[in-house]
Design a protein around this nucleic acid. Structure first.
Lengths: 251, 251
DNA sequence: ATATATTGTTTTGTGTACAAAACGAAAATA
DNA sequence: TATTTTCGTTTTGTACACAAAACAATATAT
């Protein structure tokens, strides 16, 4: 009756169009992606190929492909002969990501306003509704996730895939930034004002929507990056402390 | 004396920092990248793993990694069980890429103006100079290449890596678009006015630079995409012709 | 004659094997 | 005691092998 430890259930794949790899690879990718972006895996966590291969019940070959893809998206870091770890965005990187979001999200709003329809706006309001719901019951993870979803869904209204896909990448990196530098309750303190921008868009006020979005993104960045610096500082600090202690003749 | 056909010389690699894969993979990537972007490989060309593996003197494993990366950058197309081909951007894709470039390149100009220094502007003018030189001697390939270089180098002045890398991807895709839909002498007819934007930037006129850039990119798009439609049309046309001929009782 | 079935060949997908590099702990040295 | 060296273990990089899918060309049937 002793059976090998069962592998992770990857769920069922439905539509398989436009996918580069096999359905299974895609499923593994989604799992890892979610684990990283939803902050179940702390930045810096090592991701050994063997472990993942066993966990998902495949060979290292498939895992490698998935890790390469995540590395390209900057969600994991691969160093030569050293394997993969969950990425730890630097402060500079974090700033770049938010600056990029300002440029892209504000820039695309013209097309968004042009292509907005009542049906699409309703779909967006539905996301905001779920966002408030999650916020109300204190589900921070879901709240952050839905906030990201909103920004991406908004961009997709423009029907520009190049821009929307790029923004999706920036948003997932933002999640990593929040995980690394975020204040304990960032994102939930100031309850989301996403409804406001939808009103402006519905009114056809592209310029107003732009200034609103610029403000909103700067707010988000402020609640996050300003808590900055921690990563390598720990090691350095410990070393300096040790040196000082030894100088004082302790121990 | 019969020796196996020698493999492609990959040149020498110098600095190897910040590279995800081994130096050899990177070299292979660069070669294929250049071959595609410089239009030595026509869009739609099949890229069989075995052939590439033998050509570069490595196993399929390494080739696969490189192809995956190029697929992620949308320069090659990988279909399940069907292998890789040089990507053939659709018209919609082409429009998206140019729209994205307008958003990104105009959006980043604020930071570009803010961070511009005489030294950096000189480096940009040097690129423009070489551009004119290539143009003067009728080297269309080099001219197109340097034009792309200019746009990317300009964006890099902003020191926003996220934005600059994204733009680099858009520019390489633009090359593919030109290869697919470009008029025979697109890009060289209207000799590049890149100097003008540098003057505006040097003068600190961000708004002026933006309107100039918007205009410039719309011009470029016009010389290219408007010649549109050819890809699947060929097959369909041939079929219809055959049907018509048969109907007429010929052959 | 067109359309369908069949079969042999080519090419891709994925697992496995082995060499090289990095890591960690114990032993040697200062 | 602190540092360096060495050696065994773990983990990654790359080639290779085999199965499954696609492709191409011929044969068969309508």
């Amino acid at each position: 009756m002793s059976r090998k430890r069962s592998s992770i259930d990857l769920g069922s794949m439905q539509s398989e169009e436009g996918m580069s790899g096999s359905g299974r690879d895609e499923a593994i990718y989604r799992n890892l992606y979610a684990a990283i972006v939803e902050n179940h895996l702390e930045p810096g966590t090592k991701l050994p190929e063997d472990t993942l291969a066993e966990a998902f019940g495949v060979s290292r070959t498939s895992i490698r492909k998935v890790l390469q893809r995540l590395a390209y998206e900057r969600l994991v870091d691969i160093r030569l002969n050293r394997g993969a770890t969950v990425a730890q965005p630097t402060v500079k990187e974090a700033r770049d990501v938010f600056a990029a979001r300002r440029i892209v999200e504000c820039g695309v709003l013209g097309q968004v306003v042009a292509k907005a329809t009542p049906a699409r706006l309703d779909a967006l309001r539905e996301i905001v509704r779920r966002e408030h719901e999650a916020e109300a019951r204190g589900d921070r993870r879901e709240s952050i996730y839905l906030s990201g979803e909103f920004h991406v869904a908004l961009a997709r209204v423009s029907e520009n895939e190049a821009i929307a896909d790029f923004l999706a990448g920036l948003v997932s990196r933002s999640s990593l930034v929040i995980a690394t530098y975020g204040a304990p309750m960032a994102g939930s303190c100031r309850h989301s004002e996403h409804d406001a921008v939808l009103d402006l868009i519905a009114a056809g006020d592209a310029e107003g929507a732009r200034t609103w979005m610029e403000r909103h993104l700067k707010d988000v960045e402020r609640t996050v990056v300003l808590v900055e610096e921690e990563p390598t500082a720990t090691d350095l600090r410990k070393i300096l402390d040790d040196v000082a202690r030894r100088h004082r003749g302790e121990r």
